[in-house]
Amino acid sequence: MNQTIDTSRLQRGRAALAAIDGEAGEKVVAALADIAPDFATYLLEFPFGDIYSRPGLNLREREIATIAALAAMGNATPQLKVHIAAGLNVGLARAEIVEILMQMAVYAGFPAALNGLFAAKEVFGAREEEA
């Protein structure tokens, strides 16, 4: 690795990722190990070590914003699914996630809302199968 690693950022990032995404987040980091290990470190340090770890919003509120943003983008379905699961992990109810995604019809259009709702349906179904 070419960069100097700030272990406190990395440690904060690992802790935040574990709290938010659990095993799914670790799978993303592990999947990057053989192609872009530096990027895996950046992922842990910046979004999770710096941003998710900031005061001001709790993890539940941050996941509301993240789900809305990813749904509005319309081209980030794999990440949206991870964050819908993360939303459930940090206390969002399924009905709240559905409402967040329906709200996107107003600002991002019906296709983005539909895609988000179908992603949520998949995540909810997978959760039911695991239970």
Rank of each mutant, 00 (worst) to 15 (best):
A69Y: 06
R94P: 00
G56H: 12
E130V: 14
G116M: 09
I64P: 01
F118P: 01
A95V: 02
M1R: 15
L114E: 01
G116L: 06
S53C: 05
P55G: 10
I84Y: 04
A30L: 13
E61D: 02
L44N: 11
Y107N: 03
I100H: 02
T7C: 10
N58G: 02
G87F: 04
E128G: 01
G25S: 06
A85R: 15
I84F: 04
G13T: 13
F46T: 12
I51A: 04
G56T: 15
P78E: 05
A120T: 08
E26M: 09
Y42V: 11
L17T: 14
A108G: 05
E61R: 14
R62N: 01
L101Y: 03
I100Q: 01
L88R: 12
I64N: 00
D21Y: 10
Y107E: 10
A95D: 01
A30I: 15
E96N: 04
E61A: 01
L10V: 07
T41I: 15
V82M: 13
N75L: 12
I51G: 00
A69E: 07
R60H: 08
G56E: 12
E26R: 14
G125Q: 13
L32P: 09
L114C: 03
D6R: 14
A33V: 12
K27R: 12
G25P: 09
I20G: 02
L10P: 07
G116S: 03
A86C: 09
L44V: 14
M73D: 01
M102V: 13
L59K: 11
T7V: 14
G13C: 08
I100C: 01
N89E: 09
L32N: 09
A131I: 14
G25I: 11
L57H: 05
A119I: 10
L88A: 07
A33W: 07
I5D: 03
L117D: 00
L44H: 09
A126N: 13
R9C: 06
F118V: 10
A95Y: 00
L80I: 07
R60V: 02
P55Q: 15
A120H: 10
I51L: 13
F118G: 00
N75Q: 10
